[in-house]
Amino acid sequence: MKKPLAWITDSMGFITEELKEHPDVYVVPLNIHFGQETFEDAVDLTSEELYDRLRGAEEFPKTSQPSAGKFAELYNRLKEEYECAIAVHGSSRLSGTLASSVAGAEMADFPLYAVDSLALSYGMTGLIERGFYLQEQGLVPEKIAAQLQNETVDFRNFITIGNLSQLYKGGRMNGVQYYLGSLLKVKPIVQITEEGELAPIDKVRSQKKAMQYLVDRATESYREHGSSKFQILHANVIAEAVELREEILKVVPHAHILIGELSTVLVVHAGEGTIALLWRSEPAIYK
Rank of each mutant, 00 (worst) to 15 (best):
P23G: 05
S100Q: 10
L94F: 11
H254I: 03
P61C: 02
Y75A: 00
I259N: 11
L244V: 14
D41R: 04
P111K: 14
S117L: 12
I275C: 11
Y133H: 15
V27T: 09
Q147W: 03
V268I: 07
S67F: 07
M1G: 14
M107D: 06
K229L: 10
T38L: 01
K187D: 00
I259K: 14
L127R: 09
I285V: 10
T9Y: 04
A145P: 03
A241V: 07
P66V: 09
I259L: 13
G260I: 08
L45N: 05
S64A: 15
A218S: 10
I238H: 13
K187Y: 13
L54F: 03
T16M: 01
Q65G: 01
M211S: 13
V268Y: 01
I192A: 00
E129L: 15
R217F: 08
L30H: 08
H254E: 12
P253Q: 08
L30G: 02
K20T: 12
L244C: 14
E48S: 10
K143P: 00
K187G: 01
H89L: 11
E18V: 08
S91T: 15
A276R: 04
A68E: 06
V265K: 07
F60S: 07
V43E: 01
E282S: 15
V251T: 12
L54D: 02
A87Y: 05
V252Q: 02
H33F: 01
A270M: 15
A108L: 11
A68R: 10
R205E: 00
H269A: 10
A199Q: 13
E224L: 14
Y168H: 14
T152S: 11
E129V: 01
G271C: 04
P66R: 11
L214M: 15
E80G: 05
E59P: 02
V140C: 03
K70S: 08
L258D: 04
G181M: 13
T16G: 06
N236V: 13
L139P: 01
V176N: 04
H22E: 01
A99Q: 15
P253K: 07
L19D: 06
Q65T: 12
M124C: 09
F60R: 07
P4L: 14
W7M: 08
A42T: 03
V153W: 04
E151A: 12
C84I: 02
Y178K: 10
E151G: 11
I32E: 03
A6S: 03
L5K: 05
A87K: 03
G162I: 00
G126R: 11
S47D: 10
